[in-house]
Write a protein that binds this DNA or RNA. Structure first.
Lengths: 224, 224
DNA sequence: GAGGCTAATGACAGCCTCTGCCAGTTGACA
DNA sequence: TGTCAACTGGCAGAGGCTGTCATTAGCCTC
């Protein structure tokens, strides 16, 4: 996660306001072009031209073309971590992560909507999942998030991440499942947020019994 | 996985032989420069020049600079899948994967040594883990491998991957742990293959009890 | 409210990865 | 040996990204 820096609305000078506008416009146009035309097929020149700024200016707002694609994702991840830190300590690590994910998804909508339509964000997520180079970046970012989550978990449980592997192991297994559901949702027909929530819950519920090794036909979940 | 295409030594014409030599030389020089000077700091021009071919020729042997970095990794993954397919069906999926990983690591050395020193491969692996763009690619490749592994598991167990989430869930959790160990080994001081094997085994043994939720102080594994 | 200060921008040159194209060279094979 | 096909080199160019520098435009003070 780069910074978690939201476009915080400092209601100061006109200069700041213009910068906000430029950045918002660049983001909106970029995501729109990415999701309609395709990420690789969209050049930075096109984005810049559509906003009437120079290419050089685009790179002053976004360190890379890729960074623009992950702006919203960055916000979501920041919210997840904040939520995780607030979970009551009586919850087991696994339960806490589960709740943090579901809660942050449910509550972040307003924050996103201030920037772009939520529907555009969902399209962006699917685009990331289906664009090889972005998927790669997404996975790398996910591991960084995992590391942070592991630190939070370790602190909750009063453990030392360096000497005790369990926080990292738990987080790794958890986010492994999250990746699977994210991918399936991206490939499926159910494009709404509800579908993603349901799928995630049902898969997470499967994790422990699945690893326990008893794969008899019982407890078979419904097909997605 | 691109193709699993090993430089199979067809002892045919002189033309093939020259191609082999060129490809091998490019690979060796590339990995050597990557690991000593750094991946981003090495240009394709430098690699080509060191082998006395044109830059254009480099791209005829490797679709990208990145592909060169993953040539050996590709072989390893192919071996893992082959090994997994051969595990006796009485083993649980988790145990089968565990054995396949350990077995493939132990046996692939000769195949690697035919191309480059194994030590160079280990250095390359660490370089991949510590280079952001390569780490991203590595993770994406890993998910592709996961998908294939899930298919093998599903077939072993007579399940349908599309309707039953357990193969993917099991593989996701398993490879999540593998990633953690790979990363820790890459960051640690223990640069040998033995260290990696030990670390992996100890972490895998932790997975099921960790997720079971009982995090009392017992069963604390040794620090890495 | 005019002028100086500084942040933001545009424009240009340049590096690096990667691709298409075409001409030249070199094994392969009759 | 001569023809054919494969391999190569070199060039041009697209696209991402960076450094530099002159110009523009808010901002702040007097």
């Amino acid at each position: 996660m780069v910074d978690g820096q939201r476009p915080v609305r400092h209601p100061v000078g006109l200069r700041e306001l213009k910068k906000q506008r430029t950045r918002d416009a660049l983001l909106r146009v970029a995501l729109d072009l990415f999701t309609t035309r395709g990420y690789e097929e969209t050049t930075v020149d096109e984005i810049a031209e559509a906003v009437d700024v120079s290419q050089r200016t685009f790179f002053r707002y976004f360190a890379s073309k890729e960074e623009a694609a992950f702006t919203i994702q960055d916000m979501v991840e920041t919210h997840f971590l904040a939520e995780l830190r607030q979970r009551p300590s009586r919850e087991t690590p696994f339960v806490a992560m589960r709740h943090a994910v579901l809660a942050s998804w449910s509550r972040i909508n307003e924050a996103i909507e201030a920037l772009i339509p939520v529907e555009l964000h969902l399209r962006t997520y699917r685009m990331i999942e289906s664009t090889p180079s972005l998927l790669a970046a997404h996975l790398r970012r996910a591991t960084e998030l995992e590391e942070q989550a592991a630190l939070v978990i370790a602190e909750r449980e009063g453990l030392d991440v360096e000497s005790d592997p369990r926080p990292r192991v738990a987080v790794a297994a958890f986010s492994g499942v999250m990746r699977v559901t994210g991918r399936l949702w991206g490939q499926g027909q159910e494009t709404g947020l509800d579908g993603l929530l349901e799928l995630t819950q049902s898969y997470l519920d499967q994790l422990v019994p699945t690893l326990a090794g008893d794969w008899s036909a019982r407890d078979q979940p419904p097909a997605p």
